[in-house]
Structure formats: C-alpha cells, structure tokens
Design a protein around this nucleic acid. Structure first.
Length: 256
DNA sequence: ATGGTTGTTGGACAA
C-alpha cells in the first residue's frame, strides 16, 4: 500500500501537476494540504475520473485538507478533536484498508510571540492528546502532512538562521518530540538516518529551489504496527521542478 | 538583503 502526502498550495492552481503525478505514481492514497478552496468547490470529479474518491474539508481562501483514495474510506473525522470553536480546516481522518490515516496541516505559527504561535502550540497539544488516543485504540495509524516542524538541524539548510522561526523554535521541536515519543516513528528519518539535504519545501523566493535551500517539514508518523509494515519512505523532488510548482513536494511511503 | 515569490482576491494577508 502506497500512501503519499503533498501540500499543494491551492488544489485548483495545481490541478495539472497533481493529476499528472497521480497518473504516473498511482499511490493508493494521496493526502493533500492547503487546498485553499471551500469543500463544495473541490474538483472531486477530475480526481474520480482518475479512480480516486475525494474526502474533503475546506474553507474559503486558506487551509483545507483532503484524502484522495483508490479504496473506500470509512469513519471520517473532519476536525482535530479538542476545540469545537476552532474553525480552521486543518485535519481530516479516515480508515482505509484497515489503516487509520490523517491528513494534517499544522499551523505555521509565525510570527513567534503573537497569537499565531500560541495557536500552533495549543494545536500541537491537541494533536498529542488525540495521537495518544489513536495509538491506544487503533492498530496501524498513519499521521501525515505538513507539520510545519523542522525536527532537527539536519532538516534545514541554515539551522542558525532559522533558530527564531516558529518552525524550528525549541517549544515547537519539543512538542513534536512529545508526539513521536508516544510511540510513533518518523518514517523518513528512521529509514534514512544520515541523509542530509533531504527537504520537502523550498521557498518561492530568493532562488531557494535551484540553490537547494530547503526545509524538511512534511512528515509521516507511524504507530508501531504501521512501522512494522514500513518498506520505504521517499521524497519525490520531481514535481517541485515543474512550471507552476507548489513550494512543497510529495513524500511517499510503502506499507507491506 | 529592512531583498525575494505565489495564491487568493481584488488590498492585504498568509506562507
């Protein structure tokens, strides 16, 4: 079973690149983040034509996540539990072929010191609580998406320069470790412990892509049973080099 | 670089 995650930075602006990639890669599941459209205007029909059913929670202009699946999904959850007041569309979860899978768009959190950073840390505490319940309740759990977290210095081109950024602040990294330490395995680093310059995001500005000045912020967290089934985890850099690319590129895992 | 770019939206805001 192949599962992919991709922050597409507007699904409508990215339709050609995403559909071409789906046709060539044909994962069982593609998790999308930052679809930037309302639920009802998601281009479900185009994905159905390629054999994927779409499960979507969107909102106007910002955020929005989706699960595209070649197999039927059940027991959908459309928001991260723990705050019914939170209207931001950043979380969707479903069971596909016995695997509990979430598509996550964790808040960016910048600027540090303002409401946005507080919101990020609270969101991560909610995610920790929910991740603890999932690992207790379910067997194979896959939490994947744009975590907006740089886990370690190896995951950023200039660790010093990013010290004060919400993606790399000690509080952010600690909250991420707390989730992992519930018993999850971060798939890419587990399989590629020493691989440097392995990034999933390159800013549109200042020639970040051609200079490979990137960040590794899109992750797969796997429960113990899912980890036992893990065959591979690879970053596919090809879509980032296309015309009209997203600033993120997809990551793909295979489970046996 | 107190730069730079992209997307939504029609001026900022988010990233």
């Amino acid at each position: 079973m192949h599962i992919a995650t991709w922050n597409v930075n507007s699904v409508k602006a990215r339709m050609a690149i995403v559909t071409n990639w789906l046709q060539s890669t044909q994962p069982d599941v593609l998790l999308l983040q930052e679809i930037k459209c309302e639920t009802d205007s998601f281009p479900s029909f185009e994905f159905e034509a390629l054999g994927y059913k779409a499960y979507v929670i969107g909102q106007k202009s910002y955020n929005g996540v989706a699960i595209l699946s070649r197999h039927s999904a059940s027991d959908l959850v459309y928001q991260l539990p723990g705050d019914s007041e939170d209207a931001q569309a950043r979380y969707i979860e479903a069971t596909i072929q016995g695997v509990r899978i979430a598509s996550i768009y964790l808040p960016n959190g910048n600027p540090v010191g303002a409401d946005k950073f507080t919101y990020k840390l609270k969101w991560m505490q909610r995610l920790k609580k929910h991740a603890a319940e999932l690992i207790e309740r379910e067997n194979s759990v896959v939490l994947a998406g744009d975590f907006n977290v740089i886990p370690e210095p190896i995951d950023v081109y200039d660790p010093k320069g990013w010290e004060q950024d919400a993606l790399f602040r000690p509080e952010t990294r600690a909250a991420f470790r707390e989730i992992v330490n519930l018993g999850y395995t971060e798939a890419f680093r587990a399989l590629h412990p020493d691989q440097k310059d392995a990034y999933t995001f390159w800013d549109y500005q200042a020639g970040s892509w051609p200079r490979n000045k990137g960040l590794r912020i899109d992750h797969f967290l796997l429960s113990p049973e899912a980890t036992d089934r893990l065959i591979s985890c690879e970053i596919d850099k090809n879509p980032r080099d296309k015309e009209k690319a997203s600033d993120h590129t997809p990551v793909v895992i295979e489970l046996r």
